[in-house]
């Protein structure tokens, strides 16, 4: 039933992505080359993993602007731990724990102390960046990671990077979690109507806290995978990625008002955003122009989302 498909919230990013991919393959001869497809994968996979976390927050009616810093922190911590001579599993474990800790800090600030989510996570983004950069030294980029670490980013299976498989595994897992478990469904109840969710006995604060914690963990995972792929830490990781993820999630069916969204939507939204970036690269446009486009897209997305919510409230006679 095509009508049914079109009503799904994932339909919009799917169509957008397909259209953009079609346009790109027409406009550029190198779009379908394996080099370009690999770089697309390497851009989609970590971003999508982070967008999954953002989507969890958005479903509850919140957002996390600190994921860029968490990604950077994860990358530079990996380098630091590598300098200390830790083994690959230990590096991964500790980095993930660090991400979890930052996520818990966000959750604490927002869900426990009740600080406005935007300001709290902007503050953590700022602090996190400062903290990550204290770990940074210029020589870091010349020291190599062990082979098994690099393999996480570079290794392929059936023509796709391991990190893409990881992303797909999380996509499936999270998709099932959100759709088929009570714990997952609770997010939608909290985001849809907080007061009512309290009345039916859900602990909204705990749920929001856990979403932030998970977001921190996922951002750290993305950071590890990304740094493994580029083989050495850089100070430019994670810049602007929080915006990309937020836009991707809203295009993918999430809403700033909460209660909506899916893992698949987030992944498709990220695919669209990555194709957009890819377009800039292929057509050799200024990379900073991306920021302009992303910023304007964000405003457009906010306005459309806000307009739809306003219309709904008007229809209900609340205004």
């Amino acid at each position: 039933m095509p009508g049914k498909l079109a009503r799904k919230s994932e339909f919009v990013p799917l169509v957008l992505s397909l259209a953009l991919a079609a346009a790109l393959s027409a406009a550029s001869g190198v779009f379908w080359t394996s080099a370009n497809l690999n770089s697309l994968q390497a851009s989609i996979a970590p971003t999508a993993i982070m967008a999954f976390g953002m989507m969890l927050c958005l479903i509850c009616g919140y957002f996390d602007l600190s994921i860029g810093s968490i990604m950077l922190l994860a990358g530079l911590l990996s380098g630091k731990f590598n300098d200390w001579g830790l083994s690959t599993p230990a590096i991964v474990l500790f980095v993930l724990l660090a991400g979890l800790a930052v996520g818990c800090l966000n959750g604490f600030l927002v869900a426990v102390l009740g600080i406005n989510a935007l300001i709290a996570t902007i503050g953590v983004q700022y602090i996190g960046y400062g903290f990550a950069m204290t770990l940074w030294d210029r020589n870091m980029q010349h020291r190599k990671f062990p082979g098994d670490f690099i393999a996480m980013g570079d290794g392929q299976f059936l023509g796709m990077y391991y990190m893409t498989w990881v992303m797909l595994a999380i996509l499936v897992g999270l998709g099932f979690f959100l759709k088929y478990t009570l714990s997952g469904r609770r997010l939608y109840y909290v985001g849809g109507n907080r007061e009512a969710s309290r009345l039916i006995g859900f602990n909204d604060r705990r749920i929001v806290f856990l979403c932030y914690a998970a977001t921190g963990l996922l951002a750290a995972l993305a950071g590890v995978l990304a740094v493994a792929r580029i083989q050495s830490p850089t100070q430019y990781m994670g810049g602007g990625v929080h915006m990309t993820c937020m836009i991707a999630c809203v295009i993918g069916g999430g809403s700033f008002a909460g209660g909506k969204g899916s893992a698949l939507g987030a992944a498709l939204g990220v695919t669209f955003m990555s194709l957009l970036t890819n377009m800039f690269n292929l057509l050799e446009m200024n990379t900073q122009l991306q920021n302009v486009v992303v910023g304007l897209t964000l405003i457009a997305v906010i306005v459309v989302d806000g307009y739809l919510n306003l219309k709904k409230m008007r229809a209900m006679g609340m205004i």
Binding site: L118, Q288, N291, V292, V294, G295, L296, L298, I299, G306
Partner: peptide, 29 residues
């Protein structure tokens, strides 16, 4: 935009921030 659509001013101005920042880079470079 903020007043007509009753939007969160922080959200809108984050968008403005990004777009303008990108423009600044392009120009200044």
């Amino acid at each position: 935009l903020v007043t007509a659509f009753r939007l969160n001013s922080m959200m809108v101005t984050i968008g403005v921030m990004m777009a303008v920042k990108g423009y600044n880079w392009i120009q200044i470079q």
